[in-house]
Simulated assay, not measured.
Amino acid sequence: MDDVRIDVVDDDAAGELLTVRRAAFVTEAQLYGDPSIPALTQTLDELRADLKRPEVVTLGAWIGSRLVGSIRVELEGERANLGRLAVVPDLQGQGLGTQLLMAVLEYLPEQTKEVWVFTGQDSKQNLSMYAKHGYEHQYDQHTGDLTYAYLRRILGEEEPAEPQG
């Protein structure tokens, strides 16, 4: 995936972003048997309002002119909260999610000390990717029928070494 360009998503790409997120999160909704997860119920107007918030940065991954993935970062003082990591279904499992996850670090203010992310407790592939990149499980939270796992990475700690093989 060398031909991927990662940049901030602006309002002009809001409709495409909404489509990418919905396509990506359908599999999560199927995994949990819940079609009402927030990434699937957010309206275009709500998404546009979110993109305008000064404490939110949404990054997109493009191949050519096609938006193929995104990640949302909300800044809270010394903490960054990641969410809505989405990759189009036909390109999942090829490293785009990892590229987006790593690109976030370049957009964080200098005072950011920790990065938090959450995912469904049964989303084994997501949990594995986060753990591989230094995120450690902190706690679980039950919301209705879903259980979310919350993970944290302290910045300034070395990136885990790739296994030699």
Rank of each mutant, 00 (worst) to 15 (best):
E16W: 05
E16A: 13
L17R: 09
L18A: 14
V20N: 06
R21I: 15
R22G: 10
R22V: 02
F25K: 07
F25W: 15
F25S: 09
F25D: 08
V26W: 03
T27G: 02
L31M: 14
L31S: 10
Y32Q: 07
Y32P: 01
D34R: 12
P35V: 02
I37C: 13
I37W: 11
I37L: 13
I37V: 15
P38L: 01
A39D: 10
A39Y: 00
A39H: 07
L40K: 03
L40N: 11
L40R: 10
T41E: 11
L44F: 07
E46Q: 15
R48Q: 14
A49D: 14
L51P: 06
K52L: 13
K52G: 08
P54D: 13
P54E: 13
P54I: 05
V56C: 02
V56M: 07
T58R: 08
L59W: 06
L59R: 03
L59V: 11
G60Q: 08
G60T: 10
A61R: 07
W62D: 03
I63D: 10
I63W: 09
I63C: 12
I63Q: 15
L67C: 01
V68T: 11
V68C: 12
G69V: 05
S70Q: 06
S70C: 14
I71T: 11
I71H: 02
L75T: 00
E76F: 05
E76Q: 08
E78P: 06
E78T: 14
R79G: 01
L82G: 04
G83Y: 09
G83Q: 08
V87S: 05
V87G: 09
V88E: 09
P89Q: 01
P89T: 02
D90F: 13
L91F: 07
Q92D: 02
Q92L: 03
Q92T: 05
Q94E: 14
L96W: 12
L96E: 08
G97A: 08
Q99N: 00
Q99I: 07
L100H: 06
L101Y: 07
M102I: 13
M102V: 13
Y107W: 15
P109W: 04
E114F: 06
V115P: 04
W116Y: 04
V117G: 02
F118S: 10
F118P: 01
F118N: 11
F118E: 03
T119F: 11
T119G: 15
G120D: 04
Q121C: 09
D122A: 10
S123A: 15
S123T: 04
S123Y: 08
L127W: 03
H133D: 07
